[in-house]
Each structure stands twice: as structure tokens, then as C-alpha cells.
Design a binder for these strands. Structure first.
Lengths: 339, 339
DNA sequence: TTGTAGGCGTTATCAA
DNA sequence: TTGATAACGCCTACAA
């Protein structure tokens, strides 16, 4: 049914070796041979079997992406970035969703391993970091988003500048107390780095910053509105409570906003609000929400380029800077209420 | 370096055939052989090569998913559903992002074809439907989301019930004119079916319904707020204009809301609002947005089960009904203003 | 129940 | 520059 390399060879009147050389571009081939082979391949609708080629060359041309939780929309731009670069270099992307479970994560990593992926992208904190480490030690090129962003200095300096900018803005509006709200587990990598930056930038401007970990709702689809409301009410309305709430992630933001709405806390009248991560909902909200955009697509692209570089497929990693963080001030950040 | 089936055979003191039979579960194997082989496999950290096995069996154990535009967040639950079911049956999922371009789509389909995917899921309207059709005709099991949802009768009846429910609600509040706002191109499948349903359900209650196609912003990340505002202003404030705006997709909703905010149209005072598709932003909005949830994860799961069924891997397709559409009434739908 | 052996479709080596 | 050929790692008749 499906044509194979031998049929192409027969059709072109050459040997299979020549067909292979022409189509892969590896090895010499005369202009005439090239012409006839490509013509025959097109005529027959030939498409070489990736399995056979992988088996022979020991290269699967597949990049695996381990996603801790595919329900989280922030992975989307990231995935897109990985896909984009991978595709440019003939690579396919296999997505492995760990569904927030260590066992599923292990199964998924095993599957990726069986596919003999050429490289692995870890798109967040894995549930079982040891397993990932073991893969890396066994020679698989691994790019970990947490480590990567913390190490990419261009990105870090961009973030520093933006955090400074935000704190300036807040100080100018008279804010003295800031609360940084993050979800559940304390992240080591990027999230931890952000907090350190915020804390020191705030301190430099006489703003006290506190970090508050709000328990991730058991079911992220049905957040605990009232619970969030009472938490925020107690926080904001306590003496010397924060006058600014800064959400660590875009996914967390709507839950916080819902809590604020229930507790009837006015934005920015009673409390200013901003968040990491942008989406069409931020400007659409009333009031429009200030954001610090973080271009995760760029991170995905850079990580994938780094991997391809390590695989020897890319001469130089694109030096396009990571200067993609930006502070977009909107109505949700305003002057502190004169009480 | 990496252990091979022969090494496992040697370690277990059996032949490679026995190893294969034990590990794949196909063919007979004594309890003793099974024990020793599995032990040896674990001891050596053996993981069979998917390429070799694909080559031999002519089954890649890979399902391809063609996503017209991976930037669109609605694919996320869908992808997750596909991934979930695929994984349960040992299948890997390759994501192909067409990036809204016909050429890229073709390249991606060619790549999937080279990978010898066992089945293809099409997660939206492909840019080049002919190419997809050709693949289907060549014997590849293909599941198309548009066709699928239109044909899945359980899903359709669920949708009918929900649309009736919404229209009842609107009629009770005194609404007589409804505008259904959809993006750009008119979809043939699910989106078209929805509109037909809405139109007739509305008519049955004395509500006139009109469909308005709002041009998709060129760059979906920077929507045209003012343009949207003037469009909606002209629409809502015209004599006999609609008193209800119904957004066809969750992605469109924030752009509409931004337009309403700019035009200073009060919700629900001046105009009620609801949308297909839920997310944490809907209840967090002020006022909270009414939604018709559509569980795309369930669609992804069902489609994948259907494919596995066609591949002979699944005895019966899960008959869990599609009764997942639901109308969640929130504050954004209220009585029509008494003018 | 087990082992032997051949071949899946490609690519790399080597001799011509 | 080309062609014959031997693997790559696995699965599965078939024979024992």
C-alpha cells in the first residue's frame, strides 16, 4: 500500500542508498540523481518511516515535554514556543501530562523514554524531580524551566528592571505595605527568585513586603470563594494591612479577585491589585487589572533552542534578548486611600 | 549503554522471544519465566524501543492531534482529554500546531504521517480540509471535532436542553431581543449547530435573535477595544436593539466585555451578558458572568475513545453521557431595563 | 511452553 | 558518485 524506499528507488531507476542520500541530504548525489529521486518520491507520495529511520540512526527527532498539569493555561504559550522552534528543525513534540500525580508522571516519563526522545523539556516543577534527574544523568539533554529562567541572566535583569518599575509606581502612590500572594508550594526557581527581587526592591523604597501562601484549592475548577474572601478581608482590613495585593500567577488572580468581590473590597479604592501574567481578561476587568507580563513563549523557544544546540543541531543559540517582561499599569493600581 | 532485549534475555536466562512475550503480554509464558523476565527487566532498567517495535508491528502507539492554533486556550481542556484517554491505553500524543497557516498545517500533517501515527484528532477547523480528508481516505482513522460534536446525539440533546433553559430564563426576565456574537468565519459544525438551536429556541419564546459576526482582531493578543466599543454601542443603543448579548466563545467574551466597559454600557442594567465557556474569570468578574459550560475535555475523551475503538483497542466506547453542558446563571443576566 | 530465525524500512560502510 | 549489504531492536511464525 504505502510506498517504501525500494519502490521509490525502482521508480527512479537508482538504488535505495541513493534515494536515502538524496532525501536526507547526507552524502553525495549527482544533480541528475537528485532530480529523478525527488520526482519519483513526489509521484509516489513517499514519506520515509520515522520509526525505521530512528531505529537506524538512533535519533527519534522527537522532543518530549513534561507538563506537571496540562489544565494550567500558562503552559499554553510555553508549549507553543517549544513547538514552534522544534518544528523549525524538523522535530516533533510529544506532550506528557503528569496530571499532578507522581505515579502518572513516572509512567509518562517511562513512555517518553521508550520513545527514545532526543531531549526533554520540563515545563514546571516535576512531582518527582529525582526521576528527571536520573534521566538527565543517563545522558538525556534536559531543560528545566525553573532552573533555566533562574539562570538566564538576560531574563533576570529584565525582571529586576520591571520589579523596580512596579515598586516605584507603588511608592509614588504612597503605598507602604505590599502582600505577594502565591499558591501552595513554594517554588524554588523562578517564583522564588521573583519573591526575592520583590522583597528587596520594595525594601529599598521603604515598602514592607510579605509573602502569603494561599492553599491551592483542592479542585482548581471550583475555587473556595468565601474562604478566599475571609482570608483577604482579614488581611486587608487589619491594622497596618497591605494596601497592595500582588498575585504571583495569572491563574491565581481571578480567585483573588472573586474573594475581593465577595468581601466587598474596592479596587483600587481600598486596595490596589496587580498580577504576573496577562490575558484578555485583565484589561476587560472592571477596573482593568495591572499586570507584569512574562512571555513564556519566549522561554519555551529559548529552552528548545538551547536543547537543539546541545544536540549539535544548532550552531548558535539565538541571542534575541529576553527583554520581554513588561509592566502594564492599569486602573487597578491607584493611590492609597487617605484614611 | 542502554540495555537491549538480548541483554534482558541473557540476564533472565531465556530467549529474546520469551522476553518479548512476557513484556508485551502477547503469547504464552510460564509463571516462572514471567517472574524472571520482569525481574531482569527491572534490574537492568530495560525499556523497549518504541521505534523498533513500531517498525516491526506497524503500530506506532502514537495519536496525532492537529491544533489549528495552539494559542487558543480552549484547546487546553480538549488536549487534556485526549491525552488522558490516550495515556490509559499506552498511547503517546503528538501535538501539531498549525499556527493558523495552511502551509505549516501541511508540513505538520506530513510530519505526523512520517511518524506513522495510528490515528488523528482534528481539534478544530483545519485550514486545508482536503489534506485531512485525503489522509482519512488513505485509511488513517480520523476524528474531527466539528463533525463529531454535531453527530454525537447525546451531546446535541444536552445542548438543546440547556439552550431552552437559557431562553426560558431570558424570557422570564422580559427580554425580547437577543444578539449572538461569534468570531470571524462561520463554523459549519458545532458553532453553526449552536446558532440554529438558539434561533429556534428563542423564536419559540417570542424572542428575536440575530447573529453578528465580529471580525477577529488581526492580532488576538491586542484586540481592538475602541472598535468593539463603538460596534456594541451602536448595536445595543439602537432602537429595538438587543437587550442580551450572547458570546459564542469564551475567548471572545473578554473582548466584548472590554468593549462594553469602554462604551460604558452597564451589565445587566442596560444589557445582559452571557457566554459559552467557563473559566475562573467568569465568576470573578463584576458582575459575575453567566455561562453555558461546554466540557471540551469530555469531547476530547470521547473522540479518543472512539478512535481507539476503531483501532480495535477498545471493546466498547464509554457510554458515559455527554450530559455536561450546563447553564450557570450569574449576576450578568438580569431583568430588562424598564425604560 | 519455549527457542530459532527472518524481516520490518532505513541508513552507513565499503568497495567499485 | 553509486550500489550491494549489513545492521538497528524488536516481534512472531514456525518448529521443537
Amino acid at each position: 500500500m504505502r510506498p517504501d524506499i525500494r519502490q521509490v528507488a525502482a521508480e527512479a531507476g537508482v538504488s535505495t542508498a541513493t534515494v536515502s542520500r538524496v532525501l536526507t541530504g547526507r552524502g553525495p548525489a549527482s544533480a541528475e540523481a537528485t532530480r529523478r529521486v525527488t520526482a519519483a518520491a513526489v509521484r509516489l507520495g513517499y514519506s520515509p518511516s520515522a520509526s525505521a529511520s530512528s531505529l537506524r540512526t538512533d535519533r527519534s527527532m522527537i522532543i518530549g515535554v513534561l507538563v506537571p498539569n496540562l489544565a494550567n493555561p500558562v503552559v499554553l504559550p510555553f508549549l507553543r514556543g517549544v513547538e514552534h522552534v522544534a518544528q523549525l528543525h524538523g522535530y516533533a513534540v510529544i506532550v506528557a501530562d503528569a496530571q499532578r500525580s507522581p505515579e502518572i508522571e513516572r509512567r509518562q516519563l517511562d513512555r517518553l523514554s521508550a520513545q527514545r526522545i532526543d531531549a526533554l523539556v520540563v515545563a514546571g516543577q516535576p512531582r518527582d524531580p529525582d526521576h528527571v534527574r536520573r534521566l538527565a544523568e543517563s545522558g538525556l539533554p534536559v531543560a528545566d524551566a525553573e532552573h533555566f529562567t533562574a539562570q538566564a541572566t538576560a531574563m533576570a535583569t529584565s525582571l529586576i528592571a520591571v520589579v523596580d518599575q512596579v515598586c516605584d509606581h507603588l511608592a509614588r502612590f504612597g503605598h507602604r505595605h505590599l502582600a505577594y500572594l502565591a499558591q501552595g508550594r513554594v517554588a524554588q526557581g523562578i517564583s522564588g527568585a521573583r519573591w526575592t527581587l520583590i522583597e528587596s526592591a520594595a525594601a529599598a523604597r521603604g515598602i514592607t513586603a510579605q509573602r502569603i501562601l494561599v492553599g491551592a484549592p483542592a479542585d482548581p475548577d471550583r475555587p473556595d470563594g468565601p474562604g478566599m474572601a475571609s482570608l483577604l478581608d482579614g488581611l486587608v482590613r487589619s491594622p497596618d494591612g497591605p494596601t497592595v495585593l500582588w498575585s504571583a500567577s495569572h491563574a491565581l488572580a481571578p480567585h483573588l479577585l472573586e474573594g475581593l468581590a465577595i468581601a466587598d473590597i474596592a479596587i483600587p479604592g481600598e486596595c490596589s491589585f496587580l498580577t504576573f501574567g496577562d490575558s484578555p481578561w485583565a484589561p476587560a476587568y472592571r477596573p482593568a487589572i495591572s499586570v507584569v507580563t512574562n512571555d513564556l513563549g519566549a522561554v519555551g523557544r529559548a529552552m528548545t533552542e538551547d536543547l537543539l544546540h546541545r544536540l549539535g543541531l544548532l550552531e548558535s543559540v539565538s541571542t534575541v534578548s529576553f527583554d520581554t517582561d513588561r509592566y502594564v499599569a492599569r486602573a487597578s493600581v491607584g493611590p492609597v486611600a487617605s484614611s
